[in-house]
Amino acid sequence: MTLFEIIVLAIIQGITEFLPISSSAHLILPSELLGWTEQGLAFDVAVHVGSLLAVMIYFREDISRMLLAWLQTGFSRKQSDDSKLAWWVILATIPAVVVGFLAKDFIEHYAREALVIAITTIIFGLVLWYADVTGKLHKNIYQLNWKSALIIGLAQALALIPGTSRSGITMTAALMLGLDRQSSARFSFLLSIPVILGAGLLATLDLVKQDAAVDWQALFYGTVLSFVSAYACIYLFLSWISKIGMLPFVIYRLILGAVLLGFVFI
């Protein structure tokens, strides 16, 4: 990859990992539409590390409270708000792990095409708009229960299909369940931590099995740029989402989907 491609792909990963517009779609598109070479496993690991560091540092206080509360209460019946939230993150992660394990090869072979991305981008963009308009938006993050967490987790499993958007579909489910926009986004971001960590570990294991040269400069740039762009994205998104709502992202998804359909059929 050229330095320009490294910069563009790293920033795309950092921004789109947490916006409801699909990071996987945007990382696939440069190779599909511009003829760029695939970024490869090593670079994929690097940008995921950058995104993971960004979300963990931003939510460091929340993570510390949740982890401490979870360790203190364990499986007892007396659970605090933070320990419950930790359990809900664990519970909501399970469906994606199971579906990812069972359907990974199928999705890799049949779902990573521009037409699939275009269709899912449009459909799930409209679903996000519907959830934002019709959701009651009156619950905060600590009012989640195990049923709501499981539903959000099942929705997250759909994000294995490129174009769906992991953050988009989890926020959609949370909004439909009555969470306010800020809480929907915060739970989605917390839920991203085990998912990104798991994906990064799997990619690392695959990378270890490969006997290929590693461009350490590209990995350094990829990690740093994805970290900076992801951190800025999280900060700005949480600052603005209660005011602007999901409509700007829905409009973007519809435009992107239409453009992709144009490339497919023209």
Rank of each mutant, 00 (worst) to 15 (best):
V99K: 00
A42H: 05
T37A: 15
F18P: 08
A46K: 02
P20D: 08
L34M: 09
S83N: 02
A103N: 06
Q72L: 15
A86F: 08
F75H: 14
A92S: 15
W87H: 12
I63N: 02
P20G: 07
D44P: 03
S80D: 12
H26L: 11
L67Y: 10
L115M: 12
H109Y: 00
R65Q: 04
Y110N: 09
H109K: 15
Y58E: 06
I107R: 06
E113Q: 12
K104V: 04
D105N: 10
A111W: 02
D81C: 00
V98N: 03
K84D: 11
S76Q: 11
I21M: 13
R77Y: 10
G40R: 03
S83M: 10
A69K: 07
A96C: 00
V49D: 08
M56C: 13
A46Q: 02
R112V: 01
F75K: 14
V45G: 03
K84Q: 05
L52Q: 07
V45F: 08
L34T: 06
S76H: 11
F43H: 07
T37W: 07
H48M: 08
F106G: 01
A86V: 12
E61R: 11
S24H: 07
A86T: 06
D44Q: 08
E32K: 15
G50M: 07
K104F: 05
L33H: 02
A69N: 11
V89T: 08
V97D: 01
R112E: 08
L34W: 13
W70V: 07
L115Y: 00
E38N: 10
